[in-house]
Nucleic acid binder design. Sequence first.
RNA 1: GUGGCUGUAGCUCAAUGGCAGAGCACCUGUCUGUGGAACAGGAUGUUGCGGGUUCGACCCCCGUCAGCCACCCCA
Length: 427
Amino acid sequence: MKNIIPAVKGTREFYPEDMVVRQWLYALIREVSESFGYQEYDGPFLETLELYAAKSGEELVKEQSFVFNDRGGNEVALRPELTLSLARMIAQRQNELVFPLRWWSFGPFWRYEKPQKGRTREFFQWNADLIGVDSPQADAEVIALCATFFKKAGLVPQEVQIFINDRQLMETELIKRGFPQEQHKNVFRMIDRRDKLSLAGWEAFVKDNGCTNEQFVQLRAVIEDKELWHSSPKITHIFQILDFYGVGDYVSYDPRIIRGLDYYTGIVFEAKDIGEKNRAILGGGHYANLVEDVGGNSLPGVGFAMGDVVFPLVLESYGKLPSLPTMPARILVTVFDDDSYKASVALCNRLRVVDINAVLYPEPDKLGKQFKYADRCGFKAALVIGPDELSRGEIVLKDLATREQISFPNEELEDRIKQWLAAEKSS
RNA sequence: GUGGCUGUAGCUCAAUGGCAGAGCACCUGUCUGUGGAACAGGAUGUUGCGGGUUCGACCCCCGUCAGCCACCCCA
């Protein structure tokens, strides 16, 4: 392999076998989103850095965005997330849109991170948001949407769980335990870190960041209190609603879920693979002020995002990634020799007219070679029209799996193929 | 951004300073109208890239790129 110019680090190349997975996922996402009546939309791939600067969280903006100056000298970013674009799009048409509205999107995003398995610099993301309602019912609907998606993908609650928490509940609890309001943003960051450190390491981290020993004890008590949600009418209500949806067993309470993005103000949630790897699959939450933050009137929303990289890995680890055909045609038309080539082209034409996909072998060749090619490419059947068939006015269909051949009159082609394909599909 | 491991044929991997190899896959033939077997034969490499040490480097050293793993962070 000599001197191939390498792809940009962290970018993705979708070979046909990868592309079918991407399209399968897109179709599944569309199916679930639309089953809840969400409308598809999209925003720009390029945005001003300014859009994210105020609200996305420092790390995302300063460390992880692809930023450059355009020819006019403006600082632009390849979008690292969609929610801010969504907020602006809503704000711009705030007076004509009908609320509540439900929108979803699936498109490319970029983050400048160190690539490894499950993490690339270029990825697709599913976003779904419900805008205009500030209620536990709205939060529950969006969480139910996630759970329904998992269910539809074949994942069970023993494999994936959606963990939820409420930042308001946490704030109330923190104040009760002696943490002043201005310390909360900092404390949230500490809670976010808990899972990544040993208890001793976390203790040191917390104290290094200005907490007293008493505060450390209190903080630890908060995040270890798995029953804290009982004191929250909102979360209690949400669990009840999720039972109505029939997805209650996909959701549990976790006081350690806080989320890194700064704009969440209420319910926050994160779905994880609870098997060996413990990978985060999606995350989201409730944001009360986002539309206002980008210049609109106050309007609440709740939504989430899921990347396209981890999810198929999770499915694969549970053996639930479907095997998808990469060959869109099921029929290969062989070419016997130069004299019969015209007849082979004619067969293809007739099949395509009746919406049957067909591939024409590109040159006359030995039949054995053509059958082998057909088999390796994943075709289901090969058609033969050589001198013998032409003289009898017939066509031969060879089933590549069973190796059986049937022949039929030329004029019955369309019907016979349709019949055969229907039988093949159901077998 | 930090630390570690890895990089040899299309794929999986050998070769521990002395002629770059094996299995699988591929191509051809046995087989001039029939693909999954068998047999026979065949092709395939800037050993990721650049430098250095050495009589001699896949091997040792430095740099660099990429992948993977752990951090960081997140989808």
